[in-house]
């Protein structure tokens, strides 16, 4: 464990808590893409299947349980509990255009041709594009609530910090995972436009409107 990965995990945790608090306090899921949240639930489910077979640490296991649990609660909030406030007309990204290519790529490009490893690779590739429905929805609605912007900033920062973690681990531990690094770069690059708007607008008290 290193500071970059720890801060990254905390940023990820914060993003999830911000989202749940926004939904619970405002009793609304307006502006939130249910499709992205479904993709995140798939990402965690396929990545953490080793939850019961390989123990890394208490921290690792408890975070995995938290991420899986909250991802399903979030999907439940959107499609059941606060369904009347779900804006399905603006959440129209065709996720099959993400899942099929990502599934095919995971089958072809992976570290080991085993079920668990292919599912882990699928999860890594899927996570890199899972935010697209949400960014697409923000561009369609033309703006995002500031709380949603904070959620996106924390979520985008987590994988950016993981890039620093991989640089650290390469030099100090000789650890290098090309699949995770490439997907992490793609994932972080997708947030660049949003990061720019967040820093130039939201931090000055303005609202975000995409496309800028």
């Amino acid at each position: 464990m290193n500071i970059f990965r720890l801060v990254g995990d905390m940023s990820h945790l914060l993003a999830i808590i911000i989202l749940l608090m926004k939904m619970w306090k405002s009793r609304s899921v307006a502006g939130i893409s249910g499709k992205s949240q479904i993709l995140f639930a798939i990402v965690f489910t396929t990545r953490y299947l080793d939850l019961f077979t390989s123990f890394v640490s208490i921290y690792n296991t408890s975070m995995k349980v938290f991420f899986i649990g909250t991802s399903y609660v979030t999907v439940y909030f959107i499609y059941q509990h606060f369904k009347p406030t779900y804006d399905s007309n603006h959440d129209t990204f065709r996720v099959e255009f993400l899942i099929v290519p990502v599934g095919g790529l995971a089958f072809l490009v992976n570290h080991e041709f085993s079920l668990l490893e292919i599912l882990w690779t699928f999860s890594i590739y899927l996570e890199s594009v899972a935010i697209l429905p949400q960014l697409f929805m923000v561009s369609k609605t033309g703006e995002a609530e500031s709380i949603t912007s904070h959620y996106l900033f924390a979520l985008g920062s987590y994988r950016a910090l993981y890039l620093l973690n991989w640089i650290y681990r390469y030099y100090f531990e000789g650890f290098f995972d090309l699949i995770a690094v490439v997907a992490g770069c793609v994932q972080t690059i997708l947030y660049c436009d949003f990061f720019y708007l967040y820093i130039t607008k939201v931090l000055k008290g303005k609202k975000i409107s995409l496309p800028a």
């Binding site: 690792n60 570290h111 993981y162 973690n165 000789g174 290098f176 995972d177």
Partner: peptide
């Protein structure tokens, strides 16, 4: 073969 200490990250 997965990298050393495979998938010890979240």
């Amino acid at each position: 073969q997965p990298p050393k200490d495979a998938h010890d990250e979240l």
